[in-house]
Nucleic acid binder design. Structure first.
Lengths: 335, 335
DNA sequence: GTGAAAGCGCTAACAA
DNA sequence: TTGTTAGCGCTTTCAC
């Protein structure tokens, strides 16, 4: 592989000129520019990214730390991140944290060693001193859906609380008289806010009872178990709002096994808008987040911070959309 | 951040000694070893991976090139790869190729610039000269489920042909009298071999007809469309073997919409063993590949090649397993 | 066993 | 505009 020195020699200039040309900073005369281009072409020169990293402290690498790539939500997010990164000439490092603090910490250490230019973080346990540490080392950071209290950092999220209220409202609109909630982990912003949205919507209604909620751990089996418990306690439940689509899928499966017709006997709404909701029958009504857009925006934000285009920490809140599907499509909008 | 020089100074030795200690090559006296350890600890020294890469040409990075992380099969694979890589101190770069040759080529270029230590390749278009090029540059490569003709390289795959025959046999065992096949892209090894397995199993049977196959493009909507066409041509089809689980899910959905009972009127088998088959009702019988194990093994293989533990190219063929579920669970095993 | 020193390929002052 | 040069932090001969 040709080096910058070879190019310089062939073009009859110094390496500094080549460097300037490549990085498009500093002046380069038009004539020499042409010679340089020629030389680069004939030698098929490709700058060495590692050497650039060492010399310039910019590696063109960003890291994506999140719970689990196997989760369709994060897979779609990762896809968006990678797409945008590629467009901007960045490469992305994949880090599955399983929401374990020690894994997150190890990653951060490793990533520093590798001079990653920035980190996109969507796992739970980052504390404000971690954020401060990264900040003091000038490593740009964008958080997805979570932020340590009293740490200022850039955040990309969406309207979970509002979305939860939309979900509940929709269930009432299609005639539900007793609506349960399967909630996600309360350590998570998403799990918490969606729970709150449900609670605020129903707590003053006559039929409300605290025993209408059940945890589902954001998992299919969790959703199934939750339905089992809920229906046992309240056989008259006729609407379920699941805190995410994965649990909604589990809920649907269990409802069908219990012989309950969806949506006629029990209507069901999920949250997130992942494709899983489309492959089951009936398809599941969901409060969709613009996952791909969120991934795109957060990556753009991160790259802008890396490249110094923005300094301040920004917060972006995306709107969510209720997508009505079979799981709430009842014959009659009764009452 | 402390550098190797700081450590050397504090320990009262030269940087060479520190380097030897870190890399565990060359002799280091027991006493000095202790002093070095002390120094490293007090300074919280972490070797700089970029500098090591430049000097030693080993970056501790491997790349995973495959079609799309959004595909559950590849997501699970990626998870395995990342898990193993982490265990061995490697970091993984994510590359979605969408099976486009140009993206693959661009990636290979970028990855070379970044001195990746090895590449795990599961996309379609790599040609034998690409393989040779990588080989001549001493970049270890492991291919998943595909290999350019007449290029020797390490391959990890599983028994697609045999698996397809198992699927068909199973359908016959549960009493199917007319079995169709929804096939995947014939440019892919997987699509081709599964098709061949089907063909070999049925071509001499009295009911066989070439119009019993239909493409499904490895996609949900493809599976749906295929079922529509197949059932129109042959309303008496009572068994379907889909070339992968994604198409099987689509097939199931369409069958249900057509009002056909699964498994009683039409039994259904997929291929791959992804979780999608578990979330639908009925659950789908599938020929499962050990996806996670395949990811683990191929990563281990790659790392061994990187670290010089093996030279020769190896081929690993995994067994597949028929997992029987609701989609083929008929009341009576008739005839 | 250990150290001195020459790079790895590039960037970025600073001079010219 | 362009060139000289000193690093970036580490590995690796080659002496001692």
């Amino acid at each position: 592989m040709a080096t910058i020195r070879d190019v310089a020699k062939l073009a009859g200039v110094s390496v500094a000129t080549i460097s300037r040309y490549i990085n498009k900073n500093g002046y380069v005369n038009e004539d020499t520019k042409l010679r340089v281009e020629q030389a680069i072409k004939t030698l098929q020169y490709e700058p060495n990214a590692i050497a650039r990293g060492l010399a310039g402290r910019k590696t063109g690498t960003i890291a994506l730390i999140f719970p689990d790539i196997t989760n369709p939500f994060f897979a779609e997010l990762a896809r968006a991140v990678e797409d945008v990164a590629r467009m901007y000439g960045y490469t992305v490092i994949l880090c599955n944290s399983d929401n374990q603090a020690d894994k997150e910490q190890t990653y951060i250490k490793v990533l520093k060693q590798r001079y990653v230019d920035g980190i996109l973080f969507a796992s739970y346990n980052l504390r404000s001193d971690d954020v401060e540490a990264l900040k003091s080392e000038k490593i740009p950071l964008v958080m997805l859906d979570r932020a340590p209290r009293d740490a200022s950092c850039s955040i990309v999220s969406s309207k979970h609380l509002e979305g939860a209220q939309m979900a509940v409202q929709h269930l009432m609109d299609v005639g539900c008289k007793k609506i349960a909630h399967i909630y996600g982990p309360q350590e998570t912003v998403t799990g918490r806010e969606r729970f709150m949205g449900y609670e605020q919507s129903v707590k003053n209604l006559p039929w409300y009872s605290p025993s209408l909620v059940e945890p589902g751990y954001f998992r299919v089996d969790g959703g199934m178990a939750a339905v089992e418990n809920l229906m046992q306690r309240h056989p008259d439940i006729d609407g379920i709002f699941a805190g995410n689509d994965t649990m909604a899928v589990g809920a649907l499966k269990k409802l069908q096994r219990l012989g309950l017709r969806v949506p006629d006997q029990v209507a069901l709404v999920g949250f997130d808008g992942i494709d899983l909701t489309l492959i089951v029958e009936p398809e599941i009504t969901t409060v969709a987040q613009p996952i791909y857009d969120m991934g795109m925006l957060s990556t753009r934000l991160l790259i802008k911070k890396i490249e110094g285009d923005i300094q301040e920490e920004q917060t972006h809140l995306f709107d969510v959309t209720l997508i009505q599907r079979g799981s709430t499509e009842r014959k009659r909008n009764d009452e």
